[in-house]
Nucleic acid binder design. Structure first.
Length: 507
RNA sequence: GCAUCUGUAGUCUAGUGGUAGGACUGCAGCUUCCCAAGCUGCAAACCCGGGUUCGAAUCCCGGCAGUUGCACCA
């Protein structure tokens, strides 16, 4: 008997219960693309809503935009993506290993081959008799591997364009107008949520490595001279975060360091208050989403791991069943992008601060919706060993928040229950009504998709006007008057009251 | 991308060169029924294309998709 992987169990539930499925499945599918079903979409919306509340709506200085997904080549020429996305690769004819052409050349000779055209790379490899690093076999011709999806705009194919590999570029290329909207006063942030595309060589691991993904990003613009004057610093100063420093990585670490934001800044483990703010809020957000604090941390990435635009990356990694996985990227982009676009376009991106002209610096939290969703699924997945499984979602993320069942279909119970369900929906709850099958099976069906509370209408409901409420995680029940139902569900969902506060457990 | 193994109803599977069974799920109903376990009935599948063959879902080739390993991952 082989142990079934946790990821496989989660995929199975996702397919069967309408969370996520492969794109174009009836035509054989297409690697790296997924479609969110009814429950997956509800969860995705809840993740985005929570992010928007925390990072955008709660902050007067942050506004959200919706930019174009397809952008002309000039944007990526300036941003540096064209250059760093197009790696020339060579393949060994014998063992089929792939190498980066410029790297294999610089390893084997003193020639700097970065950025050279393919023909020259081929010539250098031939002239210097460079062989495969593994088996000494002959190398095939170099070819470009482009991680951006290319498109042609116009019926005659006049303009080359690319699907954006990150949402951020929309914000940088609109900086002038956005700064104008913010009345040219720093600091301010521009947020965006939407699809980005990367033509990954080998998509793998379900939602974790995909070619189209939803990002939630903010570009926070600030004066680098005031990088430790964040408006909300006092509110986050004492929040605990987990961190893995570069020093720890060199020594080999087993457990992340738990420190307060304040300590992190004092010990220079966090570069500035803007990065600190995002790290604190991300920690809080994941906890609200049902991901325990002890399974994720911020890792200060090594220089060679950081993106081309970053002066320092503090990625949030989670401990998943398949290993450590980057869920959120926090990049210190400095003035890299604004300078690049200002120069390439001839637009001035300077802002006057204290009578001096500066180009703002940028701190960027980039959160992957799919990766966060998968992490929630994995961390909330419960298995009692008898083949019963359920998701222990908090109400904040549960795709459906309450289920209403009649104990039986007859004697008016069904009608009573259905009206109750409608009332809950009118009150704003994501309610689910089910009459099919036995009551126990309906509880199981609700548990499997993580509905936190089940309300059952029985004969006492008709006689005495009371219903039972069942807690998913303990399977315990209480009986409450029907008129209290909305308030009780509301307080339970908000986490304002404990289940047992509303009545004695039945049986 | 290379190598490897794999691809049968919604899910998990059995199976033979002569077009498929099961379990669970789903649906309809019975059972006065509060934790998926009773009964009846219904629905539902051989990844796609080509080849070999009288005949292939079963053999071969190619594609697509997935697993694992390598490589890649701004």
């Amino acid at each position: 008997m082989t142990e079934e992987r946790l990821m496989d169990k989660i995929i199975e539930v996702c397919l069967r219960r309408g969370f996520v499925s492969p794109a174009a499945e009836i035509y054989g599918g297409v690697g790296g693309f997924y479609e969110y079903g009814p429950l997956g979409t509800l969860m995705m919306q809840k993740i985005i809503d929570l992010w928007r509340q925390i990072f955008v709506l709660d902050d007067d200085k942050v506004y959200e935009i919706a930019g174009s997904v397809l952008l002309p080549e000039s944007v990526f020429q300036a941003s540096g993506h064209l250059e760093s996305f197009e790696d020339p690769l060579v393949q060994c004819k014998n063992c089929k290993s792939m190498f980066r052409a410029d790297e294999i050349i610089s390893d084997a000779s003193s020639i700097k081959a970065e950025g050279l055209p393919l023909e020259e790379l081929d010539k250098i490899i031939a002239d210097n008799n460079i062989k495969c690093q593994k088996c000494q076999g002959d190398l095939d011709k170099a070819k470009q591997f482009n991680l951006m999806f290319k498109a042609e705009i116009g019926s005659t194919g006049g303009t080359t364009a690319y699907l954006r590999p990150e949402t951020a570029q929309n914000i940088f290329i609109n900086f002038k107008r956005l700064a104008g909207f913010m009345r040219n006063k720093l600091p301010f942030g521009i947020a965006q949520v939407g699809s980005s595309f990367r033509n990954e060589i080998s998509p793998r691991n379900f939602l974790l490595r995909v070619r189209e993904f939803q990002q939630m990003e903010i570009e926070m613009f600030y004066d680098p001279a005031k990088e430790n004057e964040h408006e909300h610093y006092e509110e986050i100063r004492e929040i605990d975060i987990n961190i893995v420093t570069r020093e720890m990585q060199e020594k080999g670490w087993t457990k992340p360091l738990k420190i307060t934001i304040e300590e992190g800044l004092e010990k220079k483990l966090i570069p500035n208050q803007y990065m600190a703010f995002f790290m604190a809020m991300e920690t809080e957000m994941l906890k609200v989403l049902g991901i325990p604090e002890n399974v994720f941390w911020f890792r200060h990435m090594q220089d060679h791991e950081a993106p081309h635009y970053s002066a320092g990356n503090y990625d949030l990694e989670a401990d998943l069943s398949i290993g450590h996985m980057e869920i959120i990227g926090n990049a210190l982009r400095t003035d890299y992008d604004l300078q690049k676009h200002a120069k390439a376009s001839g637009t001035s991106y300077e802002i006057v601060v204290d009578d001096k002209k500066i180009v703002p610096h940028v701190a960027e939290p980039s959160l992957g919706v799919g990766r966060i969703l998968y992490t929630i699924l994995e961390k909330c997945y419960q298995d009692d060993g008898r083949g019963w499984t359920w998701f222990k979602f908090p109400s904040t993320i549960a795709p459906l928040e309450v289920a209403v069942f009649p104990l039986m279909k007859k004697d008016g119970l069904a009608e009573f229950a259905y009206d109750l369900h409608q009332d809950l929906k009118d009150a704003g709850y994501l309610s689910f009504y089910d009459v099919s099958g036995k009551i126990g099976k309906r509880y199981a069906r609700a548990d499997e998709i993580g509905i936190p509370y089940c309300v059952t209408v029985d004969y006492d409901s008709l006689k005495k006007g009371s219903v039972t409420v069942r807690d998913r995680d303990t399977m315990k029940q209480i009986r409450i008057p029907v008129e209290d139902l909305e308030v009780v569900i509301g307080e339970l969902s908000e986490g304002e009251a404990k289940f047992e506060e509303f009545g004695d457990f039945l049986q």
